[in-house]
Design a protein around this nucleic acid. Structure first.
Lengths: 212, 212
DNA sequence: CGTGCGATGTATCGGTCCGATACATCGCGG
DNA sequence: CCGCGATGTATCGGACCGATACATCGCACG
């Protein structure tokens, strides 16, 4: 999952670790708290070993002076390679069952702008199916096993069931929008600034591995 | 987290691993998919090593016959010890920051029937604070950084923000109920059977480590 | 009559990710 | 001038997951 997110982000610009974490947190803030460095740095090393990103120590370019004095620990800037872009495209195309769990779906959704329409539709429907199954499970428990559980546990299930129903409705809307070929619309310009002119998704069919 | 859940469940009845997993899945179905055996069995071993549970091979009692023939691999039944109950009570009393993340809160909430009212209140308020912070973070991103993000990412944040607002409202209700000393009421007797006579929480102050 | 398949049941292994921790530099306000 | 918060890189132990292996039981289907 982290691998996917990093490859996706680095296609927008080269970054160093700290920056990567901040961008990741901003982009995925809705689904996970904050990426730990304990996962980030090992993953970066793994990606580099696989040849999907390259690591370049940041030197002040044309400054051969002050060579060893204090030896400022340079920031390490990571850049995605052509193989890395291929890998990212491949990860999108695969979209196995882990794509439908909470985290996996969220991360994939966050990079829908780099995903072709057919795959977007497939992922949305896979997620919907999964949530529907969870919903049925909760309904079963609330219906059949209700007397075996205490009031708090039941309340938790009820809240979970509500969230499931809500998400299914949300997914239905997104799927309908997707089928009609439109970008996700802004239904409520209500509270926070509903400025509408955002990136529109790439035209369906275009591969779109270059950054804008 | 798993440790806490296992100790909580085993206070209702001794169980073997498979059963434990099923009960765990039923009780926590709203917050996590299913506990993996890859976590369950090592945790059971850890709990046993710490002396919080005991392990007993299930023998057919008064049946010394058929001693070695086919040697049916007996199920292993786990029982909580007095130290285990103490440990559980201690885990409830601590309630650190990890109690407020999604999983931690869910698990603790599922065992609110074994938690005293003061702690329930503390956990609910801690959770509310945490969700409010997440909500503010999402509002910031949607307000300030909106033009830097694509339409899909924004839609994800909007959905996340909605979920936060919803959860805060839910928590407010629970907190109000808790302060008024009532068990969680059933607001909607709508769809699934709203049978009301469940466990009521233990009287505040009572230690309540015995099973009913 | 057998045979295969789904439920029950215990268990390990590799890998991902988190939380705590350590350490260093920089700019700014007190 | 001193501390403190932001920036920045990095490791370590531990929790948990997903895949896998293996064994028994009962029942439905041929």
């Amino acid at each position: 999952m982290l691998e996917f997110a990093i490859l996706g982000l680095l296609q927008e610009a080269p970054m160093h670790g700290y920056e990567l974490r901040k961008e990741l947190t901003a982009k995925l803030g809705a689904i996970r708290a904050a990426i730990s460095y304990g996962s980030l740095y090992p993953t970066l090393r793994r990606l580099q070993a696989a040849g999907w990103i390259t690591e370049a120590a940041e030197t002040p370019a044309t400054a051969e002076e002050v060579p060893a004095l204090t030896s400022r620990r340079g920031r390490v800037v990571y850049t995605i390679t052509a193989e890395g872009k291929e890998r990212f495209a491949q990860l999108i195309a695969q979209a196995g069952p882990e794509t439908y769990d909470d985290t996996g779906f969220g991360v994939h959704f966050a990079f829908f702008a780099r995903t072709d329409q057919a795959t977007r539709l497939r992922i949305l429907e896979g997620r919907r199916r999964k949530i529907e199954e969870r919903r049925e499970g909760l309904r079963d428990v609330l219906g059949r096993a209700a007397e075996r559980l205490d009031a708090y546990t039941l309340e938790l299930q009820r809240h979970g069931l509500d969230a499931c129903e809500r998400e299914v409705r949300w997914l239905e809307e997104l799927i309908a929008n997707e089928r009609s070929g439109r970008a996700p619309t802004v239904p409520q310009p209500g509270t926070a600034g509903g400025r509408g002119e955002n990136d529109s998704p790439p035209p369906p069919g275009a591969s779109r591995t270059e950054r804008p």
